[in-house]
């Protein structure tokens, strides 16, 4: 779960030098491979792409796009029909409960995919809370928007990660439900 969190945070944050390093060093690919092994899935192969291309794609998919923003990167959007809805408020309650605060340098909303990913990672020592975040907050977004990314992502980077994370969470969800059966 912790790895899933870091991958989400790394992949969906605005692409900067840190991501470029992850890509050059192959750490993101390695993380995906390890997750694939854990859940018995085929690992996605990240496309070769440069930072500038990722920045343009990230902007057009998640920030501003004159042709219509395909994937607002906020988990609340998939839970509610808008920003700052009930799902968002529940997430904030969970953050508070977990002792998580949004850093003042984070110039985006606290329910941004990257922030939720980081929260999942930070809560590695509270696996139940991390699992709740992943299944009840991250997963609905991936279900709603991974197919959109497959259509709209010019790089294949975001879509392959989103599709893969969906599959991972499908597995996690299956496990969780099995565990709940009497």
């Amino acid at each position: 779960m912790q790895l899933l969190g870091w991958v989400t945070a790394a992949a969906f944050a605005p692409p900067k030098a840190a991501l470029e390093q992850d890509l050059l060093a192959g750490t993101l690919q390695a993380a995906l491979d390890e997750m694939a092994k854990t859940y018995g899935l085929a690992p996605p192969k990240l496309p070769k792409t440069d930072l500038r291309a990722l920045q343009i794609a990230h902007t057009s998919l998640f920030v501003s796009n004159p042709a219509g923003l395909p994937c607002p990167p906020y988990v609340g959007m998939a839970l509610d029909e808008r920003l700052f809805g009930l799902g968002f408020e529940r997430l904030m309650a969970l953050y508070r409960l977990a002792g998580l605060e949004v850093s003042p340098d984070w110039r985006d909303l606290p329910d941004h995919l990257a922030a939720v990913g980081e929260a999942i990672a930070l809560l590695g020592e509270k696996p139940e809370l991390a699992r709740t975040l992943a299944l009840e907050y991250l997963y609905p977004w991936l279900k709603r928007y991974a197919p959109v990314l497959q259509e709209a992502d010019p790089t294949g980077f975001y879509s392959s990660i989103a599709v893969f994370l969906s599959k991972v969470l499908e597995e996690v969800n299956g496990e969780t439900r099995a565990a709940q059966l009497p």
Binding site: W6, A10, S103, H112
Partner: peptide, 11 residues
């Protein structure tokens, strides 16, 4: 193999 830690949130 370690992803660099991001810091949008803090405990």
């Amino acid at each position: 193999m370690k992803l660099e830690r991001r810091s949008f949130l803090k405990l």
